[in-house]
Amino acid sequence: MTGCSIGRAARATGVNVETIRFYERRGLVPQPPRPTQGYREYGAETIERIRFIRHAQQIGFSLNDIRELLALRTDPGSDCSEVRLRAVAKLGDVNAKICRLQQMRAALETLIAACPGQGAVGSCSILNEIARQNLRPVGSIHPAKPTAKGPVAMITTEFIVDGMHCGGCAKTATALLRQVPGVRKAEVTYPEKRARVLHDPDQASAADLHAAVGQTGYVVRDLGA
C-alpha cells in the first residue's frame, strides 16, 4: 500500500481517526511529517503497526504492554521467550478476572434465589444482604471462617516438566508456577527439566502446580515416573 490519508488508514485498520491520533499522542505510532501541500501520508509499515496494536488490545494487552511488545518486536537481540512470558502473565490476569466474575455471578444468583420478589423495599433481602456484605470480599455471601494463627508450614515439591525446548520454556514454566496462590519460590531448570517449588500445601496442592504448568502444553510427571 502506498501512502494514504489518515481517513483511509483508519478504514484499512478498522479503527477510527481519533484512535490513530490517540496512538500518535501516546508515542505508539509515528506521526508522518506534514507536507507543504496536501495531507499527511501513512505508509504500509504504519498501517501494519496500527493493526498490530488493535489486535493486541483485543486480546487484553494494555497500551503499556503493547509498547513493550513493539520494542521487543523491533529489537534483533530479543528472544521469543520474553514475549511468551508477557503472554503468560496476561493469561494469568485474564484468569483472575474470570474468577472474580464467577464469584460475582455466584453472589448474585444466591441473592436472587433468596429474594421473595415482593414486599416492602425496607425488608428487601437483596438490599439487606448487600449492606451486610459491604466489608466482605466480592462473592463471600457467608461470613469468612477464622483462620488459624501461627507460622505456615511450607513444603517443597519437585517434579519433571517434559516438552520444553529451551531455557525460555523453563522461564515460562517458572513464571506460571510463581503465579499460583501459596507459592513462595519456584524454579524450573533446563535441560534437567525439573521443577522445584516451595509452597503452602493448604493453598497450593501438587495437582495445582501440575495444572499451572500443564496449561502451556508441557507434560508434567512425578520424579521417578
Rank of each mutant, 00 (worst) to 15 (best):
M1V: 11
T2M: 13
T2R: 15
G3C: 10
C4D: 01
A9W: 03
A10L: 08
R11C: 02
A12N: 10
G14T: 01
F22Y: 13
R25N: 11
R25P: 04
P30E: 15
P32W: 05
R34E: 13
R34C: 02
P35Q: 04
G38K: 12
G38D: 09
E41K: 05
E41C: 03
G43E: 08
A44N: 10
E45N: 11
T46V: 15
I47C: 03
R54G: 02
G60Y: 07
S62Y: 05
N64T: 12
N64V: 08
L70I: 15
L70V: 11
R73W: 05
S78Y: 07
V83G: 08
R84V: 15
L91Q: 06
V94I: 15
K97E: 09
A106G: 09
E109C: 07
V121P: 04
G122F: 10
G122I: 09
S125D: 13
L127V: 13
E129I: 01
E129T: 13
A131E: 10
R136N: 13
R136G: 09
P137E: 11
G139E: 01
P143I: 09
A148E: 15
G150R: 13
M154V: 14
M154W: 13
I155W: 12
I160K: 06
G163I: 06
M164V: 13
M164L: 09
G168W: 01
K171H: 14
L176N: 00
P181D: 11
G182K: 01
V183L: 04
V188A: 08
V188I: 12
Y190V: 07
R194D: 06
R194I: 13
A195G: 09
R196G: 00
H199Y: 06
D200V: 07
D202P: 00
Q203P: 03
A207F: 11
A207M: 11
H210Y: 14
A211F: 06
A211Y: 11
V213R: 00
G217Q: 09
Y218H: 11
G224N: 13
